[in-house]
Design a binder for these strands. Structure first.
Lengths: 140, 140
DNA sequence: TTTCATGCAAAGGTTTTGCAGTCGC
DNA sequence: GCGACTGCAAAACCTTTGCATGAAA
């Protein structure tokens, strides 16, 4: 997995650490400011380049909820596969897991292959709606 | 559905027609050039504004496959609900439908509500992989 | 005739790129 | 020392906005 010509530098480690240490879905700019607050100076361009590198190597996932930025999350191989809930009121992104979904997707992949000749390699599911907090607020 | 202060102009009709007349998933720029080729001159800004208007009124869906643009598709109420297959080689976007998926999503919506208190209102599923044509090409 | 729609150009926000300097191995 | 990494600033890109003009009801 680790191609040659791929150096593990301090700055890259810092970026990875930020991603590992949060359950939020961060944009490049988010990471830039988080590091800045810790007095770690990394240029935005470097962050973009590093995130792309990580993505090419399967170290992070891209999340695209249509808010004008690409967000990233660390791929933790010890965790169950998950998907995302996006609140259309406050924009919060949450993760969910569902056992039956895994089974379903496995079957779906097979059906897609049979019907369309398309080989599914990965999937993204986004569920849009109203989160608990926003629903409570609306009541009042 | 049709709010007041919403005029049906020639240009808006042209834009809608383009969307109705294709099974591709078009960006604002795509639409701009398609109209241009037909000698119909509509400014890009107008297309963006119109697409947003259509979106607000549920006339079109947004598709976000992470290629740096937002794409749109006409919401045909006579068609079954569908989701998208995206080829990671050629970038082609295809649609698929799956009866069992509909059932599954209905159940999933209920489980999400029970477990997370999150009310699902809509969903997007993107399956990434290799399309038939690209797989054939790879063989050779 | 009043209100909304449009075009143009400018601005906005995010991401990428060129290049000179720096660091890791 | 060489090749890869970084920062900065500029550029590229997609999308939005302000404003004067034009079209629709």
């Amino acid at each position: 997995m680790r191609k040659k010509n791929f150096k593990i530098t301090k700055k890259r480690q810092h970026i990875l650490e930020v991603l590992k240490g949060t359950d939020e879905h961060l944009s490049a700019e988010d990471i830039y400011f988080i590091l800045k607050r810790k007095n770690i100076k990394v240029g935005l361009a470097t962050i973009y380049r590093t995130l792309d590198l990580f993505y090419q190597h399967g170290i992070v996932n891209k999340i695209n909820v249509g808010d004008g930025t690409v967000r990233y999350e660390y791929v933790d191989r010890k965790r169950v596969h998950h998907h995302h809930l996006i609140c259309i009121k406050c924009g919060k992104i949450m993760e969910y897991t569902d056992k039956k979904e895994e089974e379903f997707l496995k079957e779906l992949t097979k059906r897609i292959k049979d019907r369309y000749g398309f080989t599914v390699l990965s999937h993204e599911i986004y569920l849009y709606g109203i989160c608990n907090e926003c629903r409570e607020k609306e009541k009042s």
